[in-house]
Design a protein around this nucleic acid. Structure first.
Lengths: 131, 131
DNA sequence: AAGCAATAAATGCGTTTGCATTTAATGTGC
DNA sequence: GCACATTAAATGCAAACGCATTTATTGCTT
């Protein structure tokens, strides 16, 4: 039960806000420029690769991401439009939708991952004291 | 020079993403419900109170916040529409705009601050181990 | 089996955001 | 003093988001 002072709380919140803003902005920018995808789209691809089968139900994806159900739906729609994933029916439960990486999507992720890791390294290791 | 592993980098990023999403979502929700203002609007009011004079130039506000110049401009416009701040000319530099809290704005901030601190306390002290 | 609640995903809609541009005022070089 | 770059703020516009609703399917109760 550490008595956390009010100024300490605010300091933590502002640090969090600062870190998030800086990193997410850099990620979005860099991924967009280098690979034509946004941060949310990359996160979806990353989750699909994490799931070894690389074929996940929308609902499971939604649980692993910090996006509303509708936002995820549209993000996947954009990925499909760009040919990076495919949506398919699920025989077991016909309400559900499977999302699967395409070859192009896997390749795009492979390259984008390097970019992302680079940005993360820059922001998390560079200057521990700065910001 | 701590050699930061790739998985460690990703862990940190996901922690950051999780924390930010959780806290900002809770803040936005709670502030909106209880006081009819969003997180960005509260942050502006908070900055104005921080600046003891409570009268800041847009440009200075922008520097202290993680919002684009245009987003700040519109956020202040909403605050003005709701009667929480006033915009006024700056005699020294007629390009600049001063933003000042109104009595209503100060009062609204006073109450909203309690709400905000409560949410922060909940998320930063509650369970240090849980996410 | 029928009716009704619950669940999965998609969609309409309004809000907020960032980028690029515009408008207005200031500063600078000649 | 006059053109031209620079700076401050506002605005047009499109993208992305969340909420609420819709559509389709499944599960549950009787």
């Amino acid at each position: 039960m550490t008595e956390t002072g009010e100024t300490e709380l605010v300091r933590r919140w502002r640090d969090l806000l600062a870190s998030y803003s800086t990193v997410s902005c850099a990620l979005d920018r860099t991924l967009q420029e280098a690979h034509g995808i946004g941060m949310s789209e990359f996160e979806v691809l990353d989750r699909l690769v994490d799931a070894s089968c690389e074929k996940s139900r929308m609902h499971d994806l939604a649980g692993a991401m910090y996006l509303s159900q509708s936002a995820l739906s549209r993000t996947v729609a954009r990925l499909e439009r760009d040919g990076l994933v495919e949506r398919s029916m699920c025989a077991d439960d016909r309400r559900a939708i499977f999302v699967k990486l395409t070859a192009v999507g896997r390749e795009r992720h492979e390259r984008a991952r390097k970019t992302q890791r680079g940005v993360l390294a820059e922001h998390f290791t560079a200057t521990p004291a700065a910001v």
